[in-house]
Computed example of a mutant assay.
Amino acid sequence: MNVESVGSVYQHLSKRNLYLLDDIYHEDVVFEDAAHRLEGWSALQQYFSSLYSNVHRCDFDIKEQQQVGDSGFLTWTMTLEHPKLKSGSQVQVNGVSHLKFYQGKVIYHRDYFDLGEMLYENLPLLGKVIKTIKQRLGQ
């Protein structure tokens, strides 16, 4: 398993083929992102199952990948369609995944992305407030 293989799986991932993740993640994987820290494959598996059951679409377009030894990075754009975000319209979020491998599987997965860009800016009412704050910070 390497960064390229992981990226390839994510580019084809959907709610119909989440089983593809079984071969990627180590039993003792640690997964972190802006909103979660999960430990163990069973917790991560439940997270993905819940995530994909609630979205209409969640696609990843892998832009770049780099690996040195047992550590690597993927840059990506995620296209998300969730009924509670932006009235179900597409939301695009850019991000980076840091991956570490152990025994041929991912033992550590950390996603870096702007949670405001993905979530807060696309919620009714709160989205307008966040966008206004960002505009004022840019002045």
Rank of each mutant, 00 (worst) to 15 (best):
residue 1 M to L: 12
residue 28 D to G: 09
residue 25 Y to A: 01
residue 116 G to M: 04
residue 94 N to Q: 15
residue 51 L to I: 04
residue 71 S to Q: 12
residue 27 E to V: 13
residue 6 V to T: 11
residue 50 S to T: 14
residue 103 Q to H: 15
residue 23 D to T: 10
residue 45 Q to R: 15
residue 39 E to K: 13
residue 135 Q to C: 06
residue 13 L to I: 10
residue 133 I to E: 06
residue 66 Q to S: 14
residue 30 V to E: 08
residue 6 V to S: 05
residue 138 G to W: 11
residue 57 R to I: 00
residue 13 L to C: 08
residue 66 Q to R: 15
residue 39 E to V: 09
residue 91 V to K: 00
residue 83 P to L: 00
residue 114 D to L: 09
residue 31 F to M: 08
residue 123 L to R: 10
residue 133 I to Q: 05
residue 97 S to M: 01
residue 46 Q to C: 10
residue 42 S to A: 12
residue 86 K to M: 06
residue 2 N to A: 07
residue 71 S to W: 00
residue 114 D to M: 10
residue 138 G to K: 15
residue 19 Y to F: 14
residue 111 D to T: 10
residue 82 H to W: 00
residue 124 P to I: 12
residue 41 W to E: 07
residue 92 Q to V: 13
residue 68 V to M: 10
residue 126 L to W: 13
residue 119 L to S: 07
residue 137 L to M: 13
residue 115 L to A: 15
residue 122 N to G: 04
residue 86 K to H: 11
residue 90 Q to V: 00
residue 119 L to N: 09
residue 34 A to L: 06
residue 10 Y to K: 06
residue 92 Q to Y: 02
residue 71 S to V: 11
residue 79 T to C: 01
residue 106 V to F: 09
residue 43 A to K: 06
residue 48 F to I: 01
residue 55 V to W: 01
residue 134 K to M: 02
residue 77 T to D: 11
residue 71 S to G: 02
residue 1 M to Y: 10
residue 85 L to I: 02
residue 104 G to Y: 07
residue 79 T to Q: 02
residue 32 E to L: 14
residue 120 Y to Q: 13
residue 72 G to Q: 00
residue 109 H to C: 11
residue 133 I to L: 12
residue 96 V to S: 04
residue 110 R to Y: 14
residue 54 N to W: 01
residue 18 L to E: 04
residue 64 E to S: 14
residue 122 N to F: 02
residue 72 G to N: 01
residue 9 V to G: 02
residue 129 V to Y: 10
residue 98 H to T: 05
residue 78 M to F: 02
residue 62 I to F: 14
residue 113 F to R: 11
residue 89 S to Y: 03
residue 97 S to A: 14
residue 49 S to K: 15
residue 138 G to I: 13
residue 58 C to P: 00
residue 84 K to A: 09
residue 17 N to K: 12
residue 80 L to A: 04
residue 114 D to F: 09
residue 71 S to K: 11
residue 115 L to R: 13
residue 93 V to Q: 05
residue 61 D to I: 03
residue 117 E to L: 08
residue 123 L to T: 15
residue 72 G to P: 05
residue 108 Y to P: 06
residue 131 K to E: 04
residue 87 S to L: 02
residue 7 G to L: 00
residue 117 E to H: 10
residue 94 N to H: 15
residue 87 S to H: 13
residue 52 Y to P: 04
residue 25 Y to H: 03
residue 36 H to P: 00
residue 66 Q to G: 10
residue 78 M to D: 03
residue 51 L to K: 03
residue 94 N to C: 14
residue 124 P to T: 13
residue 114 D to C: 11
residue 36 H to V: 12
residue 69 G to C: 06
residue 99 L to W: 03
residue 114 D to E: 09
residue 5 S to C: 04
residue 49 S to D: 12
residue 38 L to T: 01
residue 138 G to R: 15
residue 101 F to T: 09
residue 15 K to D: 08
